[in-house]
Amino acid sequence: MSTSSARETASVAAAVRERAGRWRRGTPTGRLVALGVLFAIVVLAIFAPLIGSDPEAVDSFGELEAPSGAHFFGTDQFGLDVFSRVIHAARIDLTVAVLASLLALVVGMPLGALAAYRRGWFDQVTMRIAESFQAFPALLLAMGVAAALGSSLRNLVFIIAIVNAPVYFRLTRNAVIPLRDSDYVIMARAAGRSTRQILFGHILPNVREVAIAQFSVNCAWAIQILAGLSFIGIGVRLPTAEWGLMVRLGTDYIVTGEWWVSVFPGLAIIVVVLALNEIADSFRREVSLRP
C-alpha cells in the first residue's frame, strides 16, 4: 500500500471515529445501553444455528436437566436444549415484531397525518374505525382474527399489524394537529404547495422522533402479543421455538422446581421489552425537552 493511500485510509478512519464519537456523546446513556443489549440479542439470533445446538433435537435421556455446562439453560420436558431454543426463538419474535410494527407504521402513520391535516369527514370516519379496533382488548382481537385467518407466521404478522395500526394512526394524528396550524405550514399553503407536498415535506419529518419512539414501543408490544397468543395456544406451535410458547410449556414445572424452562424465555421477553421501552422513552424525553 502506498503512503498516500495509507494516509487516506487513516484520515477516513479518523473521520469515522470522530463521527462515531460525536454520535456517542450526543446519544443518551440509557439509549446506548438498550441499543447495545438489543444488538447483542440480534447477533445471537443471527448466529443461532452456529452457537446453539439443533433446537428441535430431542435428548430423550436428558429431560428436565438443570442448567449445566452442556446445556446452559437446562433442558425442557422434551429434552430440548433451552438455551438453543431461546436464541432461535429470538429470530421469530424479533422478526415478527419488527415486520408487524413496520407494517402498522406504513399503514397507520400516513393515514393519521392525512386525517389530522384534512379534518372533516375523512378525519371523523377514520377516527371511528381506529377507535372501534382499539375498543377490543388486543389479545381478543388477535384471537378473533387468528381464528378467522389461521395462525401461520405470515398471518401472525398481519394480525399484530392490524392491532397496532390504530395506535400509529392516533399517535400521528395527535402529533400533526398542533403542526398543521403552525405558521410555516400556513406559509407553505400560501406558496401554493399541495397537501402531499406539505405532508411529506413539513409535517411527517417533524413527527419523526415520536414515530421512532412509538415504533420501539410497538415492537415491544408485538412481542408480548405474539408471546401471549402462543401462550394460549393460538400462535406458534411446537416444535418451533418461540418465547411465549416456551414459557407456557414450562408453567407446569415451576411448581415442581424445574424453574429454568419458563424463566429463561421469560427473561428474554423482559430484557427485550425493557430495552425497546428504554429506547422509546429516551426519544420521548428528547422531544419533550425541546423548546
Binding site: S182, D183, Y184, I186, M187, A188, A190, G201, H202, N206
Partner: peptide, 12 residues
C-alpha cells in the same frame, strides 16, 4: 403574506 413571528414562519 408575511407573518408576525419569523421564527415560526420557517420550517425549523
Amino acid at each position: 403574506i408575511v407573518l408576525q413571528d419569523p421564527l415560526a414562519s420557517f420550517d425549523p
